[in-house]
């Protein structure tokens, strides 16, 4: 294998691997914003995991009403205030972080493998019937604006998180197919692929053991950047009522509900909106860092 990417070094001795990792961290940490992004991402993930245990009012994320305490401003008792039916906003945000991250992880966990496999197959088998079918279907999906497609799918299905994820997944895989198809199409003419073919390697081996590892750098970068986008699209669907349904909290829904009470009860909208920003922005920063990291690796 003659991979030029960092991934190709994984087979080296332990010392060499440690050296590579140290160098990678050095490259990554040169971009301070990426480090900030990484720290915030880790913090958000940590909060999503332990959120239900540290939420001051965990019951407020379930079917709960307390109209006597509705519309309370931020205070010592309710740091982020309460909403229009008396639920603690901080507690609901901590619970909503889970579904937001779950959305990003699960959508990409499905969309990336589907997109990558179909892209590699279409790219390597260029000129075949398989390529034509895969790429035309991909083109059809890409021809429809992503948000419109997601809205159409989500509105036809029952509104809940699962169907919202399904809608976003359906609109997301073609981007990976298109990306990997381009990479695989060029890599199939490289010498290391030709060499593998001459040694009698199977098509599966060439696609998934020779070509795919060399596509990982851009895929990883795109995944990190897409994480933020998927969460944003999920929040958008939830904003229009096509995501999590009450009483389960979701950030988009909280922003949407709170907007009706602006500007007097600003805390209902502002804190969930900040939470969305705190997820989306660091993933973007992290994505930039990872892109730089792989770019440096390739230059090297």
């Amino acid at each position: 294998m003659t991979s030029p990417s960092l991934m190709a070094h994984k087979t080296g001795p332990t010392v060499q691997r440690r050296d590579v990792l140290r160098r990678a961290w050095y490259n990554f940490s040169r971009n301070r914003l990426s480090v900030v992004g990484l720290v915030i991402v880790l913090l958000v993930v940590l909060l999503a995991v332990i959120g239900p245990y540290i939420a001051p009012y965990p019951g407020h994320a379930k079917a709960f009403v307390d109209f006597r305490n509705s519309n309370q401003r931020p205070s010592v008792r309710h740091w982020f205030g309460t909403d229009y039916i008396g639920r603690d906003i901080l507690s609901r945000i901590l619970f909503a972080l889970r579904s937001a991250l779950l959305m990003g992880v699960l959508v990409l966990a499905i969309a990336v493998p589907v997109g990558v496999v179909s892209g590699v197959v279409a790219g390597y088998l260029r000129g075949s019937l398989a390529e034509m079918v895969i790429m035309r279907v991909t083109d059809i999906f890409l021809a429809i604006p992503a948000m419109v497609l997601a809205l159409a799918i989500a509105s036809v299905l029952a509104p809940n998180l699962r169907n919202a994820m399904l809608a976003v997944t359906v609109m997301w895989w073609p981007w990976y197919t298109r990306l990997v198809y381009g990479l695989a199409s060029s890599l199939r003419n490289e010498y290391f692929v030709r060499a593998a073919e001459l040694t009698g390697a199977s098509a599966g081996h060439i696609m998934f053991r020779e070509i795919l590892p060399n596509c990982l750098a851009p895929i990883m970068t795109k995944i990190t950047l897409d994480m933020a986008w998927v969460i944003m699209i999920g929040a958008s669907l939830s904003f229009v009522g096509l995501g999590e349904q009450p009483p389960i909290p979701s950030l988009g829904n909280m922003v949407s509900d709170g907007a009706k009470y602006m500007p007097d009860q600003w805390w209902m909208t502002v804190f969930p909106a900040i939470a969305i920003m705190l997820i989306v922005l660091p993933f973007n920063l992290l994505g930039d860092g990872i892109r730089d990291l792989f770019a440096m690796g390739e230059e090297r």
């Binding site: 079917a63 009403v65 229009y84 039916i85 509104p159 349904q245 009450p246 509900d257």
Partner: peptide, 24 residues
């Protein structure tokens, strides 16, 4: 918007009875 409050109130009570209410 005020009707959502009513729906959530009914949902909260019914949950105590074991009835699943999907507020839409």
């Amino acid at each position: 918007p005020d009707r959502e409050k009513i729906a959530l109130l009914v949902q909260a009570s019914c949950t105590q009875l074991g009835i699943t209410i999907n507020v839409v």
